[in-house]
Nucleic acid binder design. Structure first.
Lengths: 139, 139
DNA sequence: CATACTGTAACCATTGTAGTCACATATTTC
DNA sequence: GAAATATGTGACTACAATGGTTACAGTATG
């Protein structure tokens, strides 16, 4: 893995929990499906646990499960939990003495806000349950 | 600068060219406003030149200018020129023997495509001229 | 020819992410 | 209670992307 695939991996892992909603899944199980290291999964799911999306139990027969029904977990919840910040980033330095540079800051903020206002509703509308529905029948 | 601010810097630089549309701007001029190194600007504008968005001339009195009117340069054109790939990225590895993992690929692709279908029209609709219009009157 | 530009290679520093090992802690099972 | 099985997390390595910088070849102007 090279690029930032945290969101994709999170959705994959959570879909797995949603499909097997009656058994706990271990980080090893999930890592097996995602083809990565269990520690990577534990770190990612730790963030999702802090966001109230999953629950974990230690010890034998332990593992992870969803903390709420799949139709109450939106992609936006997941995104917020695992990715920080916005889709676009401004350059933080600029020449404060340049009038254009100073105005660009607000203009770019406006552009980014407009784009985000298109994306967020789509992410909020889609839930884990929708994705699981697309899978067809669970294994 | 830490994060990926190429798109923001590109918009900043191009706005500058749009505002001063009768004089060529040098990479040094632009770097002065953006507060970065001229080479960084030249590298970025070289990509925009390949995309047909700016033109450059070498030598004394040389520099950069827009290759077409500001109302014919959309933010989408700029984005395509300076950022590669999509907004979201999938994890490329997965357990090919796991039925869920295999289906996740298509499901994620669908999700990402839906989000993109919300973003692209917004980027295509907005032009450099729109941004320059927001600046108020040029210096 | 001197000057003033772009284009680009080369290199360094920084940062973010993934991957890995190790281990403290918690829970179940026997 | 001891053994087995989990999570949570610190520490470390490897790697890729980005930005910043220096240097220089090529090119246009006057």
């Amino acid at each position: 893995m090279a690029a930032n695939s945290r969101f994709a991996v999170a959705v994959h892992a959570l879909s797995m929990l949603a499909v097997h909603k009656d058994e706990r899944q271990t980080s090893r199980d999930i890592a097996g499906s995602v083809a990565t290291n269990p520690v990577v999964i534990r770190r990612l799911l730790a963030q999702l646990a802090r966001a109230g999306i999953v629950e974990s139990t230690h010890g034998a027969k332990g593992g992870f499960r969803l903390a709420k029904p799949a139709d109450r977990v939106s992609l936006h919840d997941i995104y917020k939990a695992v990715e920080e910040g916005a889709f676009f980033v401004q350059h933080e330095k600029r020449n404060e003495k340049c009038p254009l540079a100073c105005r660009m800051q607000k203009i770019l903020a406006g552009v980014f806000a407009r784009v985000e206002s298109k994306v967020l509703p789509e992410l909020k509308r889609t839930t884990l349950a929708d994705l699981v529905g697309e899978i067809g029948l669970p294994a």
